[in-house]
Simulated assay, not measured.
Amino acid sequence: MDTAAPATALSFRDATLADVDTLVALIESAYRGDSSRAGWTTEADILQGQRTDPEGVREVVESPDSRLLAVERDGVVVACCQLERRGEHAYFGMFAVSPGQQGGGLGRAVLAEAERLAREEWGAGEMHMTVISVREDLIAWYERRGYRRTGRMTPFPYGDERFGIPQRDDLEFELLVRELG
């Protein structure tokens, strides 16, 4: 007999300006510092400093071509992601899952909902994202979900501490793409 409690349903909504501080804290906890080490998405060994700031999150919330999804479980924000309309494709970014919630399918559910929204509401044929190329485990996770590496690289913004303080000199972003049709 299965005595495990059923998983609580997730709710997805567009973030508001009232969510900015909560989302900044979530994103920071998923990628930076000791708290991020509780999950597997940490960048603490390759980047220190901030991952985002209130101004950056506020810009996404207010942009007419972007949506910042806040994902709640039991009234608590446990994940988020940005969707941006870019012509025929959508861009996926600012993705964070609370470290204590990682590894249980939450990220997969958020990604699937983001893809559905981009396809059904914007008519996007592809989803694009950029991932730091040395994050092989993260890239492999996206590949298992249908994303393909393109080999198209863009430089990491060294010297711009809004994106963190690099701990190595070989960082760059690789474009990953998935067909949504």
Rank of each mutant, 00 (worst) to 15 (best):
E121V: 02
E88V: 14
G33F: 00
A9H: 00
E72M: 11
Y147G: 02
G87E: 12
D2Y: 03
R86C: 14
G125P: 06
R145D: 01
I27V: 15
A79T: 13
P99R: 08
A90S: 15
L175P: 08
E143V: 12
A5Y: 03
F163A: 06
G56M: 15
A109M: 11
V97H: 09
L175G: 03
Q82R: 15
R86L: 15
T3V: 12
A44G: 00
A114F: 01
A9C: 00
E121W: 00
A90Y: 10
A79G: 15
E72F: 12
L26Y: 05
G181W: 07
A90I: 08
L117W: 08
R108G: 11
M94R: 15
L26E: 07
W122G: 02
Y158I: 01
G87K: 06
A9G: 01
R119I: 04
M1K: 11
G87V: 03
T154S: 13
Y31D: 11
A112Y: 00
A118Y: 04
Y142E: 03
P166R: 02
V134T: 13
G104Q: 14
R119H: 10
V24S: 13
L180Q: 11
S133Q: 09
F173D: 04
T8H: 04
E161N: 02
A96G: 10
G123T: 08
Q102N: 12
E59M: 13
F92W: 14
T3W: 13
P157H: 02
Q102A: 06
Q48S: 15
G103Q: 06
Y142V: 04
R149T: 06
G33P: 08
A140L: 12
S11G: 00
T150G: 05
D34L: 00
A38K: 01
V97R: 07
C80Y: 03
L26S: 09
G100E: 14
Q48E: 14
M94I: 13
P99M: 10
L106C: 07
L175W: 13
R178V: 14
W122V: 03
F156P: 00
D14N: 14
T3P: 01
L10M: 02
I132P: 10
D45Q: 06
P64S: 14
M153K: 03
G103F: 06
W122I: 01
D170A: 04
G93N: 11
T3F: 14
E179M: 07
E172S: 14
R145P: 01
A4S: 12
R178G: 07
A9P: 02
E121L: 05
S66K: 13
L106Q: 01
A15Y: 09
S29H: 04
V78I: 15
Q82E: 15
P6E: 10
D169Y: 02
T41R: 13
L138Y: 11
V57T: 10
